[in-house]
Design a protein around this nucleic acid. Structure first.
Length: 930
RNA sequence: GGGCGUGUAGCUCAGCUGGUUAGAGCGCUGCUUUCACACAGCAGAGGUCCGGGGUUCGAGUCCCUGCACGCCCACCA
């Protein structure tokens, strides 16, 4: 039997031992998972070598770096299981596989955690001072950080830990500075003065993406501002935030709005503040909304800011950085004494009360709108006028769009491509400065003495290049995502273009993540990759679903509906966890798990692992520990029909798994349209492998082979070979999903081993040529016979212990081929199965099988003729109906003319087969009558 | 307001360019503790493929429409 020529076996000494007693009835993950993981890592199985990548393809995945303070949750469990499946698959398939692990310093998130710790000591970060606080944070990260990486090991993640990266490491910090300086040189980094999103709790600005919308039931307050010189006239404006009225500098109406035309240019008296503000005309105003007049507060609303700029209005700031009413800039005594120092929401109540007293408040409507909240602490975001660093995004976005449109990049599931395009087309500049302490400090220095342009530098600046005077560095740090977007190449050594890793492993291959960071991270990585490396950082983005509970709610700490993957690993094993999420993972579909019933949630994984274990336990005990003859040394002629059948099924399973998983990469620089949507169907791959090992190998082949294994002789050796070969291949197919149990079993298969571990054994390949072994189909007759005999037994309630006689009736010239098959079928159905070319006389249950075979079960004294007649009649009727429909179709000239010839051919053959079968059924019914 | 998606077995979902008698897991019913496995085996029940229209020789699959859900984006005063 030819095996794949590229995969010669090298004989290695067997270390396995096998008897049923050696292996307990259920797999004990805790006893073995840790051992195998340690051995894999100790032997460098996960360590990639850039030199080897010159002689074979590389396959690289960079981990979405979890926050350094994170602990593993099911989302990580799912995300990393997917990545590990892909990396293990490609490693076995012969690629130089690298899974780059690491963590993110997570600016705001980590700073918040440490601030809370400090707060417990009754202090704020300002009490400690910047240097001490940063040191404290670094120390905290040092002591507690990276827990999640240890937890990833517990679920079997085959990352290359020798390369573990960290966004705040010196190496990656260097990359961050390089990127900032280069973008500045390219004219894409600039300092802007505008209204940005401000979190009053975190004390920092936020990007658009970090200020999340939440639908809120709010109120719309209608205020009447009277004309300064004629209080009998006025304009009504509507606002959801009355406290900002103190910062109003104008009221805007639409230029074409006839209602207000005569008021434009006149002045209104702003209540409470008692300042005069003009009525202006600006097309920003929507005449249809509210009264058609809008109050303009340039310092506290991004749109109003634009209006203010157009009309050169002043921009008084009346709310401070902590969210309290305070005159910050240009307010000139606008804030009444009674409001000063109030929290913005308390001030809202007070302002409303004051306006009501003043008769200015006309009405309050309920109003549903979306309000931005800080994505880290959920505080309502305050629009705030300030100076921030921005990245001009349009040129970068154009490149990222080009990568997708040119086919260099694909996103699965495909529908996310539209979302990606939509965002990039409407891109806005990215605010990258944060008023935090934990992060990469902005590499910009100022000289207060001579006032030269800000100095942007890769290296620390200690003296002014112009006047040699002292300089001070910008106080702000960069957005966390400004380091993350460099991750696919900063982790490989960039900006050192001669780095071996960078040369060998960039671009990477697949990026695996959830859709919620498509904008935060994925799209920006594409931009950075295209801009700095002139190549998309990966060719495939695989977006998987979210882990949810039974009410479809996202699992979260606050809802208390989470599942701790470590609990699952402890109770059921990492393999059960991995199998459950992978086998249940439709592309882009959410995974539902019940946090209140882990037994049920993880039953698919647990059950399958136990089943596989028992298949292995039994199979290995029967095969024994003596070395098995490799399959390529067995003559084809010695293979039985069952052997041929299972080897064909194995080829099919390998082909199915390959089709579900691949292609691993595009054929050229871009995806071919035909390949673009293919591959990464992990659930389908899992199902193909499961079906082979459980429903084909265990349920049928293993059952059929029991008698052969019990007898001594040459045929026993053939059966051992086929069993060992099929099981070995099955274990390899399954290994990427369930690495531990497959390794444990694979080590005991008494075949010559091509590698130390299943983890780096070659991926199975179908026998070359793709042709099927002759005679493999004969076993299908056995399957049909056994199934039908079991049906008869079940239908007639034949006790399990009762032996049944049966006859397999078939074409005379084929009976010889079925001698041993009939024995097998009998053994599998607790019956004797005689062979005959004519059905014996007498009452019997009869079932038509396939290929002209028929099963006859006399069941002396038990057969109910009426029942049998009804059974056959019902089958005949059903068949007849279908046959009529099929004949109708074949008689339709349009069908025969338009349908593909192969289909018409197949349908004709099917019709003939059905017609034959139908007439046979009628014949049997007639014979029953006699 | 703009864009996208979903609706198939009791539940969660497959069904890839329209073409066998629409599948899987879990759950359910009956039988079996038979010498690998009851986390199992065997047999079985269960589907108007959301409703309506259309295109086609042929529709779960394509188009239109209605209903019901969901997601993303947005300068919702």
């Amino acid at each position: 039997v030819p095996t794949h020529p590229d995969r010669p076996y090298s004989l290695r000494p067997m270390t396995g031992y096998t008897s049923l007693d050696d292996l307990p009835p259920t797999f004990d993950p805790s006893a073995t998972e840790r051992t195998w993981y340690d051995r894999w890592t100790a032997d460098g199985v996960f360590t990639a070598d850039p030199d080897r990548a010159s002689s074979r393809p590389s396959f690289v995945i960079v981990i979405p770096p979890p926050n350094v303070t994170a602990v593993l949750h099911m989302g990580h469990g799912l995300n990393n299981s997917v990545q590990d499946v892909l990396v293990r698959w490609r490693r076995m398939a012969g690629d130089e596989a690298l899974w780059m692990p690491g963590t993110d310093h997570a600016g705001i998130a980590t700073q918040n955690v440490v601030e809370k710790l400090v707060a417990r000591e009754g202090k704020s970060r300002f009490d400690l001072g910047r240097e001490a606080f940063v040191a404290r944070t670094a120390q905290f990260v040092e002591a507690t950080g990276g827990t999640i990486l240890q937890q990833l090991k517990a679920i079997g993640a085959s990352a290359d830990w020798t390369r573990t990266a960290y966004t705040l490491s010196p190496e990656l910090s260097r990359a961050v500075r390089e990127a900032f300086v280069r973008l500045h040189d390219d004219g894409l980094v600039y300092k802007g003065h505008r209204v940005i999103h401000w979190c009053t709790r975190c004390g920092t600005s936020l990007s658009d993406e970090e200020a999340e919308f939440h639908d809120t039931k709010g109120k719309l307050y209608h205020l009447r501002y009277a004309l300064a010189d004629d209080p009998s006239r006025g304009i009504t404006v509507a606002t959801t935030r009355p406290e900002t009225m103190l910062g109003d500098v104008a009221v805007a109406v639409h230029p074409d709005d006839a209602r207000y035309r005569d008021l434009v240019g006149k002045e209104l008296l702003l209540p409470l503040a008692n300042v005069r503000i003009p009525v202006i005309a600006d097309p920003y105003t929507d005449p249809e909304f509210g009264s058609g007049a809008v109050k303009i507060t340039p310092a506290h609303d991004a749109n109003d800011f634009e209006v203010g700029k157009r009309h050169k209005l002043s921009m008084p700031v009346v709310i401070d950085a902590e969210g309290f009413m305070r005159e910050v800039v240009d307010a000139d005594g606008r804030i009444p004494e009674s409001l000063r120092g109030l929290d913005r929401f308390d001030a809202r109540q007070r302002v409303v009360a004051l306006l009501q007293e003043a008769g200015t408040l006309q009405k309050i409507d309920a109003h549903d709108h979306s309000v931005r909240h800080c994505y880290r602490c959920d505080t309502v975001v305050e629009p705030r006028l300030s100076d921030q660093w921005f990245v001009r995004m349009q040129p970068l976005a154009a490149k990222a769009l080009g990568a997708l449109r040119g086919g260099e990049l694909r996103i699965l599931p495909e529908r996310w491509e539209a979302v990606y395009v939509n965002w990039l087309e409407g891109i806005r500049d990215w605010n990258i400065s944060r008023q935090l302490w934990w992060g990469h400090r902005i590499p910009v220095w100022y000289c207060d003495a001579c006032g030269v342009e800000p100095i942007v530098s890769r290296d620390d600046v200690t003296a002014c290049p112009s006047c040699a005077g002292p300089v001070r560095q910008d106080d702000d740090v960069l957005d966390t995502w400004f380091s993350s977007w460099l991750w696919p190449f900063s982790t490989l050594g960039w900006p050192d273009m001669e780095s071996r890793d960078l040369k060998a492993f960039y671009p990477t291959d697949v990026l695996v993540t959830a859709p919620d960071i498509l904008f935060f991270w994925v799209a920006r990585m594409v931009m950075a990759g295209e801009w700095f490396m002139q190549k998309s950082p990966f060719h495939t983005v695989y977006l998987h679903g979210t882990v949810r509970d039974m009410q479809h709610r996202k699992m979260s700490k606050s809802l208390g509906n989470g599942i701790d993957p470590i609990d699952v690993v402890r109770d059921y094993g990492a393999d059960a966890l991995r199998w459950t999420v992978i086998a249940g993972l439709g592309v882009g579909v959410d995974v539902m798990l019940d946090p209140d019933d882990l037994d049920k949630s993880f039953a698919p994984g647990r059950n399958f692992c136990t089943k596989l274990w028992n298949i292995g336990r039994f199979l290995l005990s029967r095969v024994g520990s003596d070395p098995v003859t490799p399959l390529d040394r067995v003559e084809v002629a010695r293979l039985t029909a069952a052997d041929r059948w299972i080897l064909d099924r194995l080829d099919q399973a390998v082909a199915d798994c390959d089709a579900a998983l691949g292609p691993a990469r595009p054929g050229g620089a871009a995806w071919e349209p035909n390949d673009r949507l293919r591959g990464l169907r992990l659930a389908e791959y899992a199902e193909s492998a499961r079906r082979f090992v459980w429903n084909e190998l265990a349920d049928w082949y293993l059952e059929s082979v029991k008698p052969r294994l019990a007898a001594d002789g040459d045929d026993r050796e053939v059966a051992r070979t086929v069993l060992a070969h099929a099981f070995d291949a099955a274990l390899r197919l399954l290994h990427p999903i369930i690495p531990f149990i497959t390794e444990e079993l694979w080590q005991r298969v008494p075949l010559p081993r091509p590698s130390s571990y299943c983890a780096n054994a070659p991926w199975p390949t179908a026998r070359p040529g793709g042709e099927r072994l002759p005679g493999g189909d004969d076993f299908e007759v056995v399957r049909a016979a056994v199934t039908s005999l079991r049906q008869v037994r079940s239908e007639y309630n034949v006790p399990p212990g009762q032996f049944v006689e049966s006859t397999l009736v078939g074409p005379a010239d084929r009976l010889a081929d079925f001698q041993s098959l009939a024995t097998i079928a009998g053994a599998m159905s607790r019956s004797s199965m005689a062979l005959a070319s004519e059905a014996p006389n007498g009452a019997a249950a009869q079932t038509l099988l396939r290929d002209g075979f028929e099963l006859v079960v006399p069941l002396a004294g038990m057969v109910d003729l009426d029942k049998e007649r009804a059974r056959l009649q019902s089958e005949a009727t059903q068949l007849h109906t279908q046959l009529m429909a099929l004949d109708g179709r074949l008689a339709n000239e349009k069908f025969t003319a338009k349908a593909p010839a192969a289909l018409v051919q197949a349908e004709r053959a099917k019709a003939e087969e059905w017609r034959e079968r139908h007439s046979q059924l009628l014949e049997r019914i007639a014979r029953l009558g006699s």
